[in-house]
């Protein structure tokens, strides 16, 4: 009332317009065209250069405590969201617990604890990367999965000085984008990852 007279006709017109837009359901034709064009453009781009498969490594990139890590896709079985898991007693702190994956019991390892990285806690966005070397199989906890990436072997450099402790041992190399390629074969054969404890 204080704002003066209400323009009811204008209001009704605006509402009818909105209703028509919602009731049409379909995206506006010009907008739809723009989306399709953008996609076509992206698909039409050629890779910068052809890589020799022998010189490149397909790797799965994931984020752990804000840092990007990669594992060789040969070891990766699949990725999955972290569902219910059961903590285990008498295990080192880096073993989060076990989970049921389509009938198989898979243990989940928290590499942040294994590498003594600062923990940022669990959330619904946490993912598990299921890895295997044929004899051994476990899930690696990741904050987020980035996707597949083809890495040039030549471009990998040894880990910088900031990588210390146990982490240094298991990093195969660091890419130009500071992507740390984990030497999973070595991690899986390391006695420290194998849990063997007996309780009297």
């Amino acid at each position: 009332m204080a704002a003066g007279k209400i323009d009811w006709d204008d209001l009704i017109k605006r509402q009818e317009k909105t209703f028509a837009a919602a009731g049409g359901g379909a995206i506006a034709p010009e907008k739809e065209q723009a989306v399709l064009r953008e996609r076509a453009r992206l698909l039409a781009q050629r890779p910068e250069k052809y890589r020799d498969p022998a010189e490149s490594i397909d790797a799965l990139v994931f984020v752990l405590s804000g840092e990007s890590y990669a594992v060789e896709s040969a070891y990766v079985l699949e990725t999955l969201p972290l569902g219910d898991f059961t903590p285990l007693f008498c295990t080192p702190p880096f073993v989060l617990g076990v989970t049921n994956l389509r009938g198989r019991i898979v243990s989940i390892v928290d590499l942040r604890r294994f590498f003594d990285l600062p923990a940022i806690g669990l959330s619904d966005l946490n993912r598990v990367v299921l890895v295997s070397n044929g004899s051994m199989e476990f899930g690696i906890l990741a904050d987020a999965i980035v996707g597949m990436r083809s890495l040039d072997k030549g471009s990998l450099k040894p880990p910088p000085e900031t990588f210390t402790g146990i982490r240094e041992e298991f990093v195969a190399g660091v890419s130009a984008e500071r992507l740390a390629l984990l030497d999973l074969g070595r991690i899986m054969t390391d006695p420290r990852i194998v849990v063997h404890e007996e309780v009297a």
Binding site: L43, P53, D58, S73, L77, L80, M148
Partner: peptide, 25 residues
């Protein structure tokens, strides 16, 4: 996630999976 898994599978298929890798992407 499914797209990632599909990419992984495509990578495993090697040269034959290249096209599938694109779809997955």
């Amino acid at each position: 996630l499914l797209a990632v898994n599909a990419a992984i599978e495509a990578a495993k298929a090697g040269e034959h999976g290249k096209g599938f890798a694109v779809v997955a992407q």
